[in-house]
């Protein structure tokens, strides 16, 4: 039986799609208010900010796509990330269920 045969699974995916579509708007709003987490505030207070280094930028650095604009990049990242996470988690579920 495919997971898609479960109505609750399809509902869940639909809700997730809405969240993915909202991601660029949230990213824009976070930029507008100068989003900073307590971790970043603590780094600034103790002078650690410059110690941060990027050893692995990732294929999609900072949830963006090089060459693509901010909003489309965030949207593509959200789509790729959700699809990849879904495949990995369900694969893990299959292995653990066996």
């Amino acid at each position: 039986m495919s997971p898609l045969d479960h109505p609750w699974f399809r509902t869940g995916l639909a809700i997730l799609l809405v969240m993915v579509l909202l991601a660029p708007a949230f990213a824009w709003a976070a930029g507008q208010v100068g989003y900073a987490e307590p971790l970043e505030n603590a780094a600034e207070t103790t002078g650690a900010t410059d110690a941060a280094e990027t050893l692995n930028p990732g294929l999609m650095p900072d949830y963006g796509v090089p060459g693509l604009g901010a909003a489309p990049g965030t949207l593509v990242s959200a789509l790729v990330g959700t699809a990849l996470t879904l495949v990995l988690a369900m694969g893990m579920g299959r292995v653990l269920a066996d």
Binding site: P3, H6, F9, G12, L13, I15, L16, M19, T82, T85, L86, L88, A89, M90, M92, G93, R94, L96, A97
Partner: peptide
């Protein structure tokens, strides 16, 4: 198992 996938993606 599908719930695991949904929660992870969520």
């Amino acid at each position: 198992a599908p719930l695991l996938g949904l929660v992870a993606v969520g």
